[in-house]
Write a protein that binds this DNA or RNA. Sequence first.
DNA 1: CTTCTTACA
DNA 2: TGTAAGAA
Length: 310
Amino acid sequence: MGAKFYTIGELARLSGQSVRRIRYYSDKGLLPSDRSAGNYRIYSETDAARLDLIRALREAGVGLAAIGKLIGRRLSLAEVLQARLAILETEIAARRRMAAVLRATLRLPNPADADLRRFWTMANRSNKDMHALVERFVERIAEGAAMDEEWRRRMIETSVPDLPDDPTPDQIAAWTELADMLEDEDFARDLKTEMAAFWTGAFDPAAYRDAALRTYEAAQAAIANGIPPQAAEAQAIAAAWLDDSARAMGREPDRAFLDWQFAQYEKQSGRMGRYRQLLAILRGENDSAEPDRVWAWLNDALRALPVPLK
DNA sequence: CTTCTTACA
DNA sequence: TGTAAGAA
């Protein structure tokens, strides 16, 4: 009794879709098409509901083929939606990246086509490519040095940047600058000399890492407590670092070693410091200057050590 | 007046 | 997908 039936025109009016389209769906088997005596297609209320479902799926971007499979129960709704969602999210990420590229370009004082090209190229360089870039870089600077595998692996791990799916313009710029640094011959050469100085036969990586970690934490705590680098407590931390690092490198904690430390610090706070900063930007760390502050404090404490040393 | 099919843009 | 044309 309550069963209501519609001609194609009626269904078109109440669904707000064209007669043509409904006919097309019927012919494709997406909608049942019972015929009346006069060969008119007739539709039920459940057919109207199905038509609404099809519209919703279509507007979600699901293709007619997938809808067909869903209706033929060869796919579940969850499967269809999951597949569509995966594609959608990929597209969204791609668009976000592109928007970030445009913003990064527009952020420049006077953007040129070369800038856009450059940002675009870099943003499209996959994380895998970047990983390869870092590996080649580490290979190059480790060449000749007796660096152990564990250390090398860790070095690569901590040096590989990761471009987020939804990067800010700053992150695009950081990503681009990092790639440049990795391809910079001078930078590589400097680091290589530095590595060679470290990796002598006497170097004990585990002890060095240990000392560095301990010192970093001690310095960080001291800074938090407002202790100045000249204070006795700071001097103790600095002296301990000098002893421990010298021992880990098979050297004496003398004046020469101290000077070498200063030189090391100058280099570290240069391009290496910039590298760390860029990595921090990519990780979205707001406090990217923290490590720099800690090492600067330690360097000041070292400078305040009584001269001459023993 | 409506729908059907087929063909075309 | 829209539109046209001739038939039912």
